[in-house]
Structure formats: structure tokens, C-alpha cells
């Protein structure tokens, strides 16, 4: 009966799996798995047979350097520069070899081969910012959210209300302690795994740390919103899942959003996690400097401010 009568929990237990299924359908929408991924510059030549092959994911790039980076690190198999009548392939890539053979056998005389060399980005290099981001999101959002909701439910907050401590002081202390915990665990996880796996790191560690700290603060502020007045841990957990799981699905934690429907990519821009993962990847895999990641950092800072203001307006001791 507790399950049925706790309305909030019941609704989320029903609504949540449904949302999850739709979320997946949305993210993976539009056809099955593609075997190869081919980039092109310029207008897609609709008359060429190669470009109408099934099971190749064609991605348009506006910038040649960006596309070549992708080939260099094996993130796409080949790039066709349509206006220049050339294609670029990485000689150490097996997929690149197969796609190249396909292209030259179909339109052998049309494009000139150019090669690009580079160490492949292993999946783990690419995955580690996503993993740390995900971990940071869970411990930030759930850490602060759960603790305050539990304190409210069992009366710890009421007892504190009877002391001269102000809500602002109490919440700031909670945020500060959680912030230190999450930043330290993120750094420890990164350092320990880096020691063994030697991640590709083309940018500055300091910048990566700055982005991490900003993102942790942002996630904690997000958690605070749930912690402001909810009394039931079950409801809080449901709501927090509703916010965090879509972020895991479509902010590029496990798989790249390149080639997802444009609407998915647009939606992913409203998730703070996306901005952290993108900028952390940019720093690690592309050697991006402050100027390149500044827009994402500004977005994160903006989110943090909005979350904090919302939380402070909603906060109740009881």
C-alpha cells in the first residue's frame, strides 16, 4: 500500500520506464547501426552511387581541419572533400582501408587519395571524460539532493531551524563539503586510471581541472533544486533520475552524438553534462585552449547561477 499511496513514487515508477524507452528510441532513432562513418566537405553529391550506400553514416563537416582531426584519431573512417575532388584516409585504420577500397572501386578516377597519419584515439581516451562527468553528476545531484531531503524528512533540518543558523549558512556548508568531496574523487579517479591507461592528453591539466570544478558546482546546484522542499526520498530520487538519465542517454557519455538526428544534438545542448563532456574532450583529445572551451564554460556558469537562484527561492526548512 505504501507503494500505491505514495503518489509521487507511483507516478515516477510508471512514468520513468516509459520515458526511458522513448528516450532511447529518440536517441537511436532513424535506422539501424552503421558500419562505417564517412565525412564530407561541400555539397553531398547525390548522383554518386557511393553516397547512396546503406550502412555508411555520412556526416557533413564545414571545416576541413576539424574533419582531418577526426580521421587522424580514427573517429571517422574517411573524409571526402567534394569541391577539391580528394579524399583523406588514415593508413593505419582498417575501416579506412575498406571504405577506401569501396570508394575507389566505385569512383576510382574521381577523387585523389591523400593520407593522414595519427595514433588512434582509443575508446577509453574518448570515454574517460564521459565517465568522470557521469560520476560527478551522480554524486553532485544525488549527494546534495538526498542528504537534504532525508534531513528534512527525519527532522534534522527542523532541529537546525531552532538554532541561530541561517538557511544560507547551512546550505553553503553542505555545498562546500560536497564540492570538495566530488572534486577530490574526480581527480583521484582520473589520476589513478591515467597512471595505468595513459590517456591521450593534448591540452592543459589546469584547464581540465577548472572545467571539472565548474561542472561539479553546476551539478551540485542542480541537486539543490530538488533538495529545497521535497520531503519524500522516493519522490526526490524519481525526479533526480528524470533529470540525470536523459543526460546520460544524450549527452555523449557512451556514444558520440555525431550522426544523431539534429534535434537530439539540439536537445543535448541544454544539458550541463554535455558541455562538460564536450569541453573536457576538446581539452584532452584536441588540445583545446581556454578560448575554445570558454563558451561551454560560460554556459556551465550560467546554468549554475540559474540553479542557485531557483534553489534559494524555493528553499524551505520543512
Amino acid at each position: 500500500m505504501e507503494f500505491v499511496r505514495d503518489r509521487g513514487t507511483l507516478i515516477w515508477n510508471l512514468a520513468f520506464p516509459i520515458l526511458l524507452v522513448f528516450g532511447f528510441a529518440f536517441a537511436f532513432g532513424g535506422g539501424g547501426d552503421d558500419v562505417f562513418s564517412v565525412g564530407y566537405l561541400g555539397e553531398r553529391p547525390g548522383d554518386l552511387e557511393f553516397f547512396s550506400l546503406d550502412h555508411i553514416d555520412f556526416v557533413e563537416y564545414a571545416d576541413r581541419d576539424e574533419a582531418l582531426e577526426k580521421v587522424r584519431y580514427h573517429q571517422i573512417d574517411l573524409v571526402v572533400d567534394v569541391p577539391e575532388q580528394a579524399f583523406y584516409v588514415n593508413e593505419s585504420s582498417t575501416n579506412g582501408y575498406l571504405v577506401r577500397r569501396l570508394l575507389t572501386s566505385m569512383h576510382g578516377d574521381r577523387f585523389v587519395q591523400q593520407t593522414v597519419a595519427g595514433r588512434p584515439i582509443r575508446y577509453v581516451d574518448w570515454f574517460v571524460p564521459g565517465l568522470i562527468g557521469m560520476n560527478m553528476m551522480f554524486s553532485g545531484v544525488f549527494g546534495v539532493g538526498f542528504v537534504l531531503v532525508r534531513y528534512r524528512k527525519n527532522g534534522v533540518l527542523k532541529r537546525l531551524k531552532a538554532t541561530p543558523v541561517s538557511a544560507l549558512e547551512f546550505v553553503s556548508a553542505q555545498v562546500a563539503s560536497r564540492f570538495m568531496i566530488v572534486v577530490i574523487t574526480s581527480v583521484v579517479v582520473f589520476t589513478a586510471t591515467n597512471f595505468v591507461l595513459d590517456f591521450m592528453m593534448l591540452g592543459s591539466y589546469l584547464l581540465l581541472l577548472a572545467i571539472t570544478m565548474l561542472a561539479v558546482f553546476c551539478m551540485i546546484s542542480l541537486g539543490l533544486i530538488f533538495a529545497t522542499r521535497i520531503k519524500s526520498e522516493e519522490l526526490a530520487s524519481g525526479l533526480m533520475n528524470v533529470v540525470t538519465l536523459p543526460m546520460i542517454l544524450i549527452s555523449g557519455v557512451f556514444f558520440s552524438l555525431e550522426g544523431s538526428p539534429p534535434i537530439v544534438r539540439t536537445v543535448s545542448r541544454i544539458f550541463p553534462l554535455t558541455h562538460f563532456i564536450d569541453s573536457a574532450r576538446a581539452v584532452m583529445l584536441e588540445g583545446a585552449g581556454l578560448a575554445q572551451v570558454a563558451p561551454s564554460m560560460l554556459v556551465l556558469a550560467g546554468f549554475t547561477v540559474v540553479f542557485l537562484i531557483t534553489a534559494s527561492m524555493l528553499f524551505r526548512w520543512e
Binding site: Y151, N154, G155, V156, K158, R159, A162, T163, P164
Partner: peptide, 17 residues
């Protein structure tokens, strides 16, 4: 404002950390 500093309270039920 200083009332809370001058009184002590024991609630009917309070959880502690």
C-alpha cells in the same frame, strides 16, 4: 533576532545526524 540564542529546544521527535 536573538531569541533563538537564548532558548533551548527539545522537540518531540528529532533525528540526529
Amino acid at each position: 533576532a536573538h531569541f533563538k540564542e537564548r532558548v533551548g529546544i527539545q522537540f518531540q521527535s528529532t533525528a540526529l545526524q
